[in-house]
Design a protein around this nucleic acid. Structure first.
Lengths: 227, 227, 227, 227
DNA sequence: AATGAATGAGCATTCATTCAT
DNA sequence: CATGAATGAATGCTCATTCAT
């Protein structure tokens, strides 16, 4: 009553929006995103999520069933938000090289700014993708990402700028790999090899390098006569 | 009746190596590696680690102090083992292109085979590298990885095969990024975009692509006159 | 089989008062008082406290946070109860000597009857008073004890019965010391010097002696011309 | 090996006196006294005692059997040392008042200086004197303490200075009570009623008061005609 | 729709103690 | 005499979850 009861923290909650189920759920999802991204699924604490919320622990169970249900919804929301954010980017397909560089720069910066998303993806990979929900639905959410690359690549091939025979999927994979790794593995890579790559100028150069790498690969036939 | 059984498992333990502290520690570390890699730090259960062991839970605390101490030692061991495994690879510096392809193939396959290592690195990145121990020591362990690339690149430049002005660090980063991502993000990438990349042939092509990408980048000056 | 039983005791618990947080806390505090008084802080076992309770171990943590939090509350409650018990005593200030004897008899008997309180005070002194909570609050709880003595002494001085120049604080200290020691050190004193003082008649005489000692001190100027 | 193994602290131990069983035991007893006095029986940790020692934990078991055996020996030693210390005090029985004041001053200061002894006695009282060993032996150790008072009192009565009919036992009890309580309850009494009594001057006055109290009681017949 | 009270199962950790040499 | 390695049994505490209103 007076002292402890760690589980019932007095909280000054904005009460105005009560009676609005969707807002309450949204509010819970935001809190959960933070917590899951910071501590992983097992490390996250329902109590702490509730504390970050303007509602109570009981409501989490009311709306999401259990911890896993909440986590699933967080994952889904995070992917959806991310892909929707990407759709806002406008590309000029008449200049395929420029478009591709723009897409890479965008992805690079987007991932840097949304480390919560990156962390959540890592966490979900540790869980071997068990919480991605219905496969088809998940695929649908993500389809636009490849589509984007495909449009640019096709335009480039049509204009005779890019070489033929490459798959948009692999191109997207290359871009993803480097833009993702840049954020996901910064801690260990920096500790192992120094932080030069992660300074502001290091990052600018790295982004440039990724663009150059992908573009060079699109422009030049690889040499397999080894020396 | 049922409740206590977890701790009393009749275990057929090899008793021969008792009184051999190093073997006992090694045995614990192996069990812990599995468990941490599978469930993360928070999700790992000391009891389950002990069960995989030929000794008891008590000995874990005897030798490693607490869960975090054990985890730290697992991380250190995993990195050390990995880097030492890499040193076994012999490269012929007189043929830089071939050497680089060989290094990439090796890294690609090594990472695929050691998904425990990959998972542990991901986990540690989620923890923001808090358990890597003394920074200098960790850097020392990892230094050879860059050194390898530097030797190949320097040889290539000297022989006029590779273009000048690139950093070995960035090259290592590129290779790492793609070989690591291939394993670390297989679950989410596969679910989002299909498993073609992760079939046996898909993987063969992907490895080839990584090699081509890096080599092309080393051979051709990038085109920055955008079209 | 046997090993888990301590926690699963079939206990006939009065269920009527559930959902009554204050009663539950009170119930826990009583059980804890017994246990702490009997075994000290370190020796007390949360499981045993829970067993003496009509609720579960979990509720101890729910309401008191941890063992120390519970102990703190027990100490506070014990002091509060004791001081409040003392306030019930009615004293006739028109007869200061009688009033003082009555106060001493009361204190003597009170301490004998409440050996739990005495033991808890000893335990807390061994812990060097670390759990007494906010100093001012603790002082406020105890203030009435001195006030009582002060009233009697002032009345006695005004009536010309007691000599001037003594402090109520020291008088309270004298009374406390002897009434407390009588209970607190009975075990060792009895073992060392025999149990005569602790038989019913021995105790009656001892109480009388304490009264005589304090009163004689109040009536007669001490002789410091040593012989 | 490298990091934890909390139980095997590297200790720079004076090795010179090894092979001397009595010195080893003495060394252990001193360490144990500190630890038991500071934390009580249940709170004391065998590991910490061993750490304070110049020998190992195993030796504690070798010489003392178990924790309780060690504690018993500590109690016995403490009482023995204390009583022997008291025998050093020389008293002039031709001046009984002076002798008694001297004895009280000595006891008062002795207890202040040996708070370890006081704490251990408190602890043993909490354990209800269960570890005092053979009763007769313990009584023999303590007998001199009363004897001392008896000599003074008898001398005083013979010289017509002290009134007749009092018991040396009670006198010793009075002195003990106040001198003991002064140290044992300083923490709680100070917190409850302020620290004035425990400042250097406060203590000087308190000692004086104890002397005055006891002597006045010895010189004046108590007044039982209450007013 | 909402909530404070309640909880069983299990968690990391610690303890005094004994074994093997 | 001496010691590093080993251990069973508990200990304090936490977790996600459900009850009762």
């Amino acid at each position: 009553m007076l002292c402890c009861m760690t589980e019932n923290k007095e909280k000054k909650k904005r009460q105005g929006w009560k009676q609005n189920p969707e807002a309450v759920q949204e509010n819970i999802l935001e809190a959960a995103l933070e917590e899951f991204a910071e501590r992983g699924f097992a490390g996250a604490r329902i109590n702490l999520i509730a504390d970050k919320t303007d509602t109570s622990k009981r409501m989490i169970y009311y709306y999401f069933g259990d911890k896993e249900g909440l986590y699933r919804r967080v994952i889904e929301k995070t992917y959806t938000d991310t892909r929707q954010g990407e759709l806002a980017l406008e590309l000029d397909l008449s200049k395929p090289q420029e478009a591709l560089r723009k897409l890479i720069t965008f992805t690079f910066n987007h991932h840097r700014k949304h480390s919560d998303f990156i962390r959540l993806v890592m966490i979900e990979n540790i869980h071997q993708g068990r919480h991605l929900g219905e496969k088809q639905h998940f695929a649908d959410i993500n389809a636009p990402a490849i589509q984007r690359v495909k449009e640019i690549y096709s335009a480039g091939v049509e204009q005779g700028v890019f070489r033929r025979g490459l798959s948009a999927e692999q191109l997207h994979w290359q871009i993803s790999a480097m833009c993702f790794f840049n954020v996901s593995n910064q801690a260990t890579f920096g500790a192992a090899f120094g932080d030069q790559l992660f300074t502001p100028t290091g990052q600018k150069e790295l982004c440039q390098t990724i663009e150059d790498t992908v573009l060079t690969f699109l422009l030049h036939e690889p040499d397999r006569l080894l020396k």
